[in-house]
Computed example of a mutant assay.
Amino acid sequence: MTTPSFHPLTIRECRRETADTVSIAFDVPADLADRFRFVQGQYLTLKTRIGDEEVRRSYSICSGVGEGELRVAVKKVDGGLFSTHANQSLAPGAVLEVMTPMGRFHTPIAPDAARTYVAFAAGSGITPVMSILKTVLAQEPKSRFVLVYGNRTVSSIIFREELEDLKNRYIGRLVIHHVLSREPEEAGLLGGRIGAGLVRELCAGPLKAEDIDAAFLCGPQPMVEEVRDALAACGTPPANIHVELFGTTTSARPAAKMAATDTPTDAATIAILQDGKRKEFTLAYDGESILDAAHRHGADLPYSCKSGVCCTCRAKIREGKVEMAENYSLEPWEVEAGYVLTCQSRPLTERVVIDFDAA
């Protein structure tokens, strides 16, 4: 596995999508084309300096595989340092440090398959869904896609015109339900919010929950969890439901210190494996996260959100045990296989070996 790495990329285009959202397309040099080859639903971590501060943020790719471009969308949020900078200051010709694509918010494409895909997205949660939707429709000609997309008003619908064009291009294969929370109902648009009630209503119609081959949920944590539980209750196999958050409602908590009888030493020995090299240091059981400690000891490990959402700091435990304070991005099979989010991990044993080179 190639370790994620940053590369300077020049912005080719900044396109205004809504009043508070801009999409950014990058030029990718030929010698980096393979490194920036992506799978639908993946994301990029962008890094720059704003004033005296280094800022890193992760944004989902909105391009379809095969479209020939690398593009992300950035929605301005109140108090958002990078999102404000992107919407107000970035322009073609500017250079950002961009990490190679990451993320597993997707299922493999099967050109001969005839599948039913469903996506529930809110606001900027449409970004990875656009990549998935466009790729599926282009590369699985027998499959169909149902999109339920929530926004406040018509004017806040990101990619509105592009979605309409796609619906016209893939008549009979793409169904879009717009849900507006702060605007009177218009013809063809639903009022209210995306939640369990809407899921049950849709599944009582022509969309049968048990027939959903893949459901993609992207948005704020409460919506994602409510829709996930409602789909499962209606009969969608939990293994077919895939989630991605763009925010959480909880804050990370420190791991509890182990009893002296379990850990006779005051600190654990941590070994980091990266790019075929090894770095060791000690870390108190109730101290900082393994990621933060590793950076303090000179390791240049990948990270972005540090809140357990983006999965950029994912690595595999080769020896020992850790406790994760939060996990919003690892799949159950990954946890079972020994993968952890190092930004949320603290040691539980005297020795922990963590492999960043593991696939």
Rank of each mutant, 00 (worst) to 15 (best):
I157Q: 13
V28E: 05
D52P: 02
G287R: 09
I354D: 01
D78E: 15
I132A: 01
A230Y: 02
G103D: 08
A73S: 12
H178L: 09
I126Y: 00
K316T: 05
P111I: 08
I270C: 02
L245D: 04
S289V: 11
E185L: 05
F356Q: 03
T10V: 10
V154C: 09
A138E: 09
G41I: 04
R104A: 12
K208A: 12
A119M: 04
L348R: 15
R152N: 00
M324T: 06
L330S: 02
E53F: 13
S156D: 15
G51T: 05
L174V: 08
R278D: 14
G308A: 01
D266F: 06
E280C: 10
A293R: 15
V146D: 06
P347K: 07
T21I: 12
L273P: 03
C311W: 02
R182M: 11
F145I: 08
K75A: 14
R152A: 06
V227D: 06
R71C: 14
V353F: 00
A359E: 15
E67P: 10
P302A: 10
P347Q: 04
G68P: 09
C310D: 07
H7V: 01
R193K: 07
L133V: 03
Q88D: 14
R253E: 15
A239D: 13
F120S: 03
G192A: 03
G41R: 04
A209K: 10
S124R: 02
D357V: 14
Y59P: 13
G80P: 08
I50F: 00
C14F: 00
Q274N: 11
K321A: 15
K306Y: 00
H85S: 07
V148F: 01
G298N: 03
A204T: 10
C62N: 07
S251C: 03
S23Q: 05
G51M: 05
A255S: 14
S143A: 04
A214I: 13
L96H: 07
I126S: 00
G192M: 10
E17Q: 08
D211V: 10
K134D: 03
P111N: 01
Y339H: 12
Y43P: 05
F216I: 10
D165F: 00
E13N: 12
C343Q: 09
T116G: 06
K47E: 14
R253P: 03
T263M: 08
A214E: 14
D355C: 02
A299Q: 14
P141N: 07
H295D: 03
R56T: 15
W333D: 09
V353P: 01
V72R: 11
K277G: 09
